[in-house]
Design a protein around this nucleic acid. Structure first.
Ligand code: SF4
Ligand code: SF4
Lengths: 137, 137
DNA sequence: CATAAAAGGATATAAAATGTCTTTTTAGGG
DNA sequence: CCCTAAAAAGACATTTTATATCCTTTTATG
């Protein structure tokens, strides 16, 4: 349950790698894909999604590629994950209580709400800056 | 991302309902299914899983049915969910770091570990007792 | 205008989710 | 001992989601 998909995993790998590169250097998608060991065509789709919401900026044509759209410290892991996976919804009633006619008197409902809050909290507290620079140990 | 499946949702509904019933009365699966609005054949599979690990006790034959295996206050939502959904694994590297050769120097890895801890914490803090008796508001 | 690179769209395959159906086992009651 | 009730077990069917790949189009450079 609750498993990140490959797409989400690849998305993180890709953008974290991009965050390690100087922001004034454009990176080829193919280079990124190779560096983080992700199928290039798949990563392309992911970066298109990033590009649409401004998480990365893209340049077409010769000399083109990608750069980070904002500073690494202003991009949270939550944004990255939700960009490709959609909102974090532990149960259907969390996105909209009207999805379940029981939600009015259901004791479980608030638990899922809490789960959502906690998960979002953890992910929002982490930025690309930390992910790309901090040496784990 | 991270969405509970129908199976998990049904499992909770079913066992919470069972927890509202006196523990000395066996309940027909068909009655439970009707009460919580779940396909009976599907709920049957779920309760078979519960039965195997003792979350419920089953009786076959005439007059048979299900009762809760332990007291409602001793069964946590986490147990119920994991019984049918398997362990809560936000990312493959959490179940076993060897699933990803990057886990050694990966800065994201500990974040998923934290997510797992938080989610488990929330679910473990909730018992069937609360879910079945407490009137929400 | 030739080339490089991303964007967009269609398609293919595999896996997981969501059930259903049939047969078997177990138990109770007449 | 048989008949019936009920869960257990296993096989099967359908739909949806995940995981890509391929091809064409657009955009930019030199
Ligand atoms: S947790 Fe309660 S409100 Fe949410 S889907 Fe289940 S029954 Fe409905
Ligand atoms: S988070 Fe890090 S360790 Fe976990 S799967 Fe992704 S790269 Fe591997």
């Amino acid at each position: 349950m609750m498993e990140l998909t490959r797409k989400g995993e690849y998305a993180i790998r890709g953008i974290v790698y991009l965050a390690t590169r100087p922001m004034d250097k454009v990176c080829l998608l193919s280079d990124i894909a190779a560096a983080v060991d992700v199928p290039p065509t798949f990563l392309a789709k992911i970066f298109q999604q990033f590009s649409k919401i401004g998480l990365v900026r893209s340049f077409r044509g010769t000399g083109g590629g990608f750069v980070l759209g904002r500073s690494p410290e202003s991009i949270t892991l939550l944004e990255v994950v939700e960009a490709v996976e959609g909102p974090i919804i532990p149960n259907r009633c969390v996105s909209s209580p009207s999805n379940c006619e029981r939600s009015g008197l259901c004791n479980v409902h608030p638990v899922w709400q809490r789960v959502q809050d906690e998960v979002r909290g953890v992910l929002q507290a982490v930025t690309l800056k930390e992910l790309s620079t901090q040496n784990k140990r």
